[in-house]
């Protein structure tokens, strides 16, 4: 069942397409499905954290642990929806929303100083001290007109990241 020979019907593909707002073409979805099956080695309908980490290029990404929380246990539909933010066809808004979600790990709709600090910690590891990180961050926040206590909302992210627009595109290989 999990082998590449399991097939998607037109209905399946359209359903998935609806789910990701038609961001991916049918061919891209077929490609993604093959990839999904390949990663889902034990054919259980979702990709476990361990299977994600078996991709070395993913495992060595500084944000992999954080992303794992988002992708762990996704079924194919949600897997595609997750990746849709990386399509060239996705809007800037969508991409920023995605980034916002990465920061907003508790999902309360706002990003605190500590949330950003944690991402910064993932990115810089042991090569910056906590103090340095706090300093850099508060300095930069201050310049942008925020304080340590202020929460950043999605709108703030759009303001900061919206212009010039982000380059966050991953091409789905289509056979």
């Amino acid at each position: 069942m999990g082998s590449a020979s399991s097939v998607l019907t037109q209905y399946d593909i359209e359903e998935v397409q609806e789910h990701c707002n038609k961001i991916f073409s049918q061919q891209e979805i077929v490609s993604l499905y093959q990839r999904f099956c390949q990663l889902d080695r034990s054919a259980k309908g979702f990709i476990s954290a361990d299977e994600f980490l078996s991709v070395p290029e993913f495992a060595m990404n500084p944000l992999s642990q954080r992303l794992l929380k988002m992708v762990d246990g996704l079924n194919f539909k949600d897997f595609v929806a997750f990746l849709s933010a990386f399509s060239a066809k996705a809007s800037a808004q969508q991409k920023i929303e995605f980034i916002f979600k990465v920061y907003d790990s508790d999902g309360n709709g706002k990003v605190s100083f500590n949330d950003i600090l944690e991402v910064l910690r993932d990115l810089s590891g042991s090569f910056m001290s906590d103090e340095q990180r706090v300093n850099v961050l508060s300095q930069v926040l201050q310049e942008a007109g925020y304080t340590r206590e202020s929460y950043l909302m999605l709108d703030d992210f759009i303001k900061v990241l919206g212009n010039p627009s982000l380059k966050m595109e991953v091409e789905v290989p289509v056979d």
Binding site: E57, N61, V71, L123, V170
Partner: peptide, 17 residues
């Protein structure tokens, strides 16, 4: 600091292929 898109792009790229 906020723009983590390169790292995310890399991660998603690795997931896709």
């Amino acid at each position: 600091l906020l723009d983590i898109s390169p790292t995310l792009t890399e991660a998603a790229g690795a997931i896709v292929d």
